[in-house]
């Protein structure tokens, strides 16, 4: 469920990046790579778990599924917070600088 949540976040981000790639002001490429990196790593984790559990991997307990979904959503939120911090520090549109040094 964590893998699935991150993959969906990565796909949505990639679509948004493609739509706004011309301006490049939102630094969405960083967020895309962040989610894709995590998705690939969780994919490896899932493959190893599948090798260990077999078909049982696809029938998790509802409580485990809920916990994994909660974890996935929290990971997506953390990714967004990191991206927001990068966006505000890099400040490609100069909005923060303009606000800070406005007389």
């Amino acid at each position: 469920m964590t893998l699935l949540t991150t993959v969906f976040a990565a796909i949505i981000c990639t679509v948004l990046w493609y739509r706004t790639a011309q301006s490049g002001e939102w630094k969405l490429g960083t967020l895309c790579l962040m989610y894709w990196g995590a998705s690939l790593m969780w994919l490896v984790d899932a493959i190893f778990e599948y090798a260990e559990l077999g078909a049982a991997y696809f029938t998790p307990e509802p409580a485990d599924m809920l916990n994994d979904l909660f974890l996935g959503l929290s990971a997506v939120a953390l990714g967004l917070v990191i991206w927001l911090a990068i966006l505000l520090i890099r400040d490609p549109k100069g909005v923060v600088r303009q606000k800070l040094f406005k007389k």
Partner: peptide, 14 residues
């Protein structure tokens, strides 16, 4: 770098 650090950050959180 972004692929790796992004994955590391989210996996560390996990």
């Amino acid at each position: 770098r972004n692929l790796l650090w992004g994955g590391v950050a989210l996996l560390a959180f996990e």
